[in-house]
Design a binder for these strands. Structure first.
Lengths: 164, 164
DNA sequence: GCCAGTTATTTGAAGCCTAAAGAAATTCAG
DNA sequence: CTGAATTTCTTTAGGCTTCAAATAACTGGC
């Protein structure tokens, strides 16, 4: 810590401790909540979080979507989705077929049973999340949404800059 | 959406859409940043994020710590730490020994080489994080810290309530 | 001292995840 | 039409992760 000519607290130009602490806190929050959701899903429905997430993506689209779309939306690798889908088809939650217009493309959608199962889980899941965030008022929620949107944009810009 | 007698917008009592959206946004931010850090660590130092995280815990304590402490601090299972430590001892980054006062306890600490390696990585890591958050001003950072602290407390309370 | 309960760690089975390489289908320039 | 480039998906190797069961060591009451 340094004091400048007007006796105001000033940081060294290359001290990024606050950003590091912010990142760690963000990570801690997410890990905490994710762990909580994960164990409730297991305990209550004997389902894993990745499976729940995949079904959540599919619940939005009655006609199904491609594996690539799923992997983009879930932000995981293609290979990952292949295995995940395999197990969900096996367990009867998903239907899978090859697109007629492009035979490279695999389409998937929820089965009737899969959709019913998901809806049941999603209803409880919503209550868990509400409970987990229950100490935050509507203003806090709005403000967090805004700041996280800004964070996301900033991170995407940084990732984009590196990729190019 | 419903309008009440004073014509103000009011939500159904059991609609938690905002909390769900907040959680998804939080998760998206973390996943995005974590993925970015992960690939930079791999690209630049050929190291995984879990290994970096473990070394970060150990960098703070010159005399080492127990496996249990590491697993609590990293919020991962004991079994996970066992394997992680195994590989880091193998690669020469960690020393490991059995506590003299309690022979159940395994202690670990960074080797000299491990510490030097970590410090090098941490210095760059700090710049990456600063860059990733660079669109947020100091006020945004402070506000996010505050709201995430509140979120963490709320989530812990909820997890605590369920556990008991 | 002994035994029951607790704590620290390891092991094993299953699943999740990535990066990289490969296979198959499509697209497009020439 | 042909062949190179691209896209979609799968496979492989390695590592991470959890949960649950097993092992080993400690603790406290008797």
């Amino acid at each position: 810590m340094i004091l400048d000519s007007e006796t105001k607290a000033v940081e060294l130009p290359d001290d990024h401790g606050n950003e590091i602490r912010l990142w760690l806190r963000l990570l801690t929050c997410t890990t905490l909540i994710e762990g909580e959701v994960r164990s409730r899903l297991r305990e209550r429905f004997d389902v894993t979080l990745p499976r729940f997430d995949l079904m959540a993506q599919l619940d939005k689209v009655p006609d199904g979507m491609t594996l690539s779309d799923v992997s983009k939306r879930m932000m995981v690798s293609n290979g990952n989705v292949t295995g995940l889908v395999e197990r969900l088809v096996e367990s009867g939650h998903l239907d899978r077929w090859t697109s007629e217009s492009d035979r490279r493309v695999q389409m998937i959608r929820l089965t009737k049973a899969g959709r019913a199962e998901f809806r049941k889980m999603a209803a409880e899941h919503e209550l868990w999340i509400a409970d987990i965030f229950s100490d935050l008022g509507p203003r806090d929620v709005r403000e967090l949404m805004r700041l996280l949107a800004k964070t996301k944009a900033s991170a995407q810009k940084s990732a984009q800059a590196r990729a190019s």
